[in-house]
Design a protein around this nucleic acid. Structure first.
Lengths: 211, 211
DNA sequence: GTCAACATTAAACGACCGTATTAATCGGAC
DNA sequence: GTCCGATTAATACGGTCGTTTAATGTTGAC
């Protein structure tokens, strides 16, 4: 019965590492130590496995986002009392620290980025409701802080903010090498610091808020 | 002789549309109306075609970036006299308006995003020097506007800015649909307006500049 | 013990992949 | 015209792909 689970675990790593098209069903089943036909049996085929993998990657992120927002509101009494920085941190934290919501490793971001691009940025149907719910919840919260700003402008700012945090994983490493001039790998990025930086950047980008 | 060119044109569109792994050499040669073996003959194989396609996509962007910076400096006399907004616009404009530097259509961004992710964000060697040159030129220019800010912080801000503009194409459409609540396609995004928006967002994110 | 439903296995299928091979064709130089 | 290198064309090859099939193993209810 845990054949299904082993397939999902193996698929996760392999898809993130080499992409959906770069991984064969045989790769997955070999890595999982199960039979080739298991994928067809449990997921109906490769496409079904991809959908299930993306769902397992995307949903916890948005659930965590919603939870962090709810907790922040509870902590401060009401939406309008949540400081802007805290709001932005709650929005971005699940992406920078995915393992806090059970999503293993930073490969998750690559998997998600791959899928979004390859599917022409179509959110998979199994995750769309949750994604929409999270996005709209934060949109409403941001509107409270910027009552004079047009909603469409706020949405743009949210997109820009999301873009900022989505690309820091990959390009961040490259850019830091460029800036130091050296090519030696400086190891892993300090994610707490990077989260703080990107939050401050986005908060300033929004316009600072009324605070 | 223009067989080579026809292959590159067809490859561009197909790779951007379906990804490198999702497009076979036969797809390319059929679309180009040339023989299957032409790819091996002119590019040494599929991988060579990919490299050449990415180079044709990436280099004009960075050349345009460098040219815009040089023109802005010439216009104002020196680097420090170029307004920050103008600097940021020069940095982002080639990505939002790629056809201004001969790069056809917005598919280019998808192609580039695909390649960066699939290659683990490794800049292809045929484009690395130009990429580095452009990046460092802008880094120096930004340093002039923020003499008190640590270079590493400026680089981070540049990465965040690049992320903002890189994702607006895909996620922008999705997000605007979400915000309007409706699912009807509102057609193409106003790119002049979006460029202005993302520039203002990034300038604020940087910290507003010295002025 | 028997049966049925579920799960796993090994083997095979047809389709498509990238590449190599060989032959045919072209365009100037002489 | 003749020759020759450059280019294009047709075909074949070995390999891998996703999926299917048929047989086997496993489980729990009755």
């Amino acid at each position: 019965m845990d054949t299904r689970e082993q397939i999902l675990n193996a698929a996760w790593d392999l898809f993130a590492e080499r992409g959906f098209e770069g991984v064969s069903v045989r790769d997955v089943t070999n890595a999982a130590g199960v039979n080739l036909a298991s994928v067809s049996y449990h997921f109906g085929g490769k496409e079904g496995l991809i959908q299930e993998t993306v769902k397992r990657c995307m949903n916890p992120i948005n659930e965590y986002r919603i939870r962090l927002l709810r907790e922040a509101i509870a902590r401060h009494g009401s939406v309008e009392k949540v400081p802007l920085v805290e709001l932005m941190t709650a929005f971005m934290r699940p992406v920078v620290m995915p393992e806090e919501c059970g999503v293993r490793s930073g490969l998750m971001l690559r998997l998600l980025a791959r899928y979004l691009i390859e599917s022409d940025y179509a959110i998979p149907s199994a995750s769309r409701n949750l994604y929409t719910e999270a996005f709209q919840a934060y949109a409403r919260a941001f509107m409270v802080h910027y009552p004079g700003v047009a909603p469409v402008t706020l949405v743009k700012h949210m997109v820009f903010s999301a873009g900022s945090v989505m690309f820091y994983h990959g390009l961040g490493k490259v850019a830091l090498q460029l800036s130091s001039g050296s090519r030696e790998d400086t190891g892993e990025i300090d994610r707490d610091e990077m989260l703080k930086d990107v939050v401050e950047f986005a908060v300033r980008g929004f316009g600072g808020g009324k605070q």
